[in-house]
C-alpha cells in the first residue's frame, strides 16, 4: 500500500487498520480543478467528518470514494483511492461491486416511489443476497431495526416509502444502504433537510452504525461533526487543510483557516 506520502496532516493514527486510503486525489470538472490533491485515510469503524465552507470540495471528495462522480460527463479523477488496498479506479474493477461495498446516503431523502419493503429489498435483490421470502423478510426487519425505524413502520411495510416524514425517509434510506451490508457508508449532509429532533435521531444512529461500518460524513453543522465523529477533515477551496482527531481540530486547530472557520469568522 502506498503510504509513503503521508503528510503532516496524517499524524493522528488510530489503532484500527486503514479502510480507505486516498492519495493525491485531484478532481476536474472540465477544465476547472475542484480538488487539488487530497491525502487522507479513513480507519475501520470510525466516523470521519468532512467539514468546510460551501464549494470547498468535500462533497466532491466523498463522491469519489464510490465513484458516483462517474455519472457526471465532464468529471475526471486523478490520483489513487484504495479500498482495503485495492485501487477503486482500476479499469478492471466493477463499479457496481464497488458501490455494493461502499454505500451512500444523500443530502435529500430519496426513497424510491415503491413500498417501504421494496425500498429495502431493492439492493439485496440486485446483488442476489437473498432468494426466499423469509430471507428478505429478515433483511428488511434487521435493516429497519438498525436504522431505528422498525417500530414506526413494521405495520405498514407495504405503504409507499414516499409517504413517510422527512426524518423517517432519511432513516429508510439509511436502512436501504445498510441492507446490502456495505463495508463503508458515505453520508452527504444527511441531516440538512431535517428538523432538530430527526437530526438527533440520525446522529444517534450514526454512532451505533460505527460498530459495524466505516463511515464518512459531510456536514455543514460543526456541532454535528463534533458530536458524531472521531476524526475530522477540514477542506478549503479544494484543499484538505487539516485532518486530525475531532477534539483536537475543534479545540486546538493548527491551521489558521481551520480556526477561522470553526470560530465562525468565515464560511
Amino acid at each position: 500500500m502506498d503510504t509513503t506520502t503521508l503528510t503532516k496532516n496524517m499524524e493522528a493514527v488510530s489503532t484500527q487498520p486503514v479502510k480507505v486510503c486516498a492519495r493525491d486525489v485531484k478532481v476536474f470538472y472540465g477544465a476547472k480543478r475542484a480538488l487539488h490533491g487530497v491525502n487522507v485515510d479513513v480507519y475501520q469503524n470510525e466516523v470521519l467528518a468532512l467539514i468546510g465552507p460551501s464549494g470547498c470540495g468535500k462533497s466532491t471528495f466523498l463522491r469519489t470514494l464510490n465513484r458516483m462522480n462517474d455519472t457526471i460527463d465532464i468529471c475526471r479523477v486523478e490520483g489513487k483511492i484504495l479500498l482495503d488496498g485495492e485501487d477503486i479506479y482500476d479499469p478492471k474493477l466493477d463499479v457496481v461491486q464497488l458501490r455494493a461495498r461502499v454505500g451512500m446516503v444523500f443530502q435529500k431523502p430519496n426513497p424510491f416511489p415503491k413500498s417501504i419493503y421494496d425500498n429495502i429489498t431493492y439492493g439485496p435483490k440486485l446483488h442476489g443476497l437473498a432468494t426466499r421470502k423469509d430471507e428478505f423478510d429478515e433483511i428488511v426487519e434487521r435493516s429497519l431495526k438498525r436504522a431505528g425505524l422498525w417500530n414506526e413502520v413494521k405495520d405498514r411495510l407495504q405503504e409507499p416509502g414516499t409517504g413517510l416524514s422527512g426524518g423517517q425517509q432519511q432513516r429508510l434510506c439509511i436502512a436501504r444502504a445498510v441492507a446490502v451490508s456495505p463495508e463503508v457508508i458515505l453520508m452527504d449532509e444527511p441531516c440538512s433537510a431535517l428538523d432538530p429532533i430527526a437530526t438527533a435521531h440520525i446522529e444517534e444512529l450514526i454512532d451505533e452504525l460505527r460498530e459495524s461500518f466505516t463511515i464518512a460524513i459531510v456536514t455543514h453543522n460543526m456541532q454535528q461533526a463534533a458530536r458524531v465523529s472521531q476524526r475530522t477533515a477540514f477542506f478549503h477551496l479544494g484543499d484538505l487543510v487539516e485532518v486530525g482527531n475531532t477534539e483536537e481540530i475543534f479545540t486546538n486547530p493548527r491551521d489558521e483557516r481551520t480556526q477561522g472557520y470553526i470560530t465562525g469568522r468565515y464560511g
Partner: peptide
C-alpha cells in the same frame, strides 16, 4: 432517485 439506485450498486 437515480443516484440512490446507482449508490446501491445498481
Amino acid at each position: 432517485l437515480r443516484d440512490g439506485s446507482l449508490g446501491l450498486g445498481a
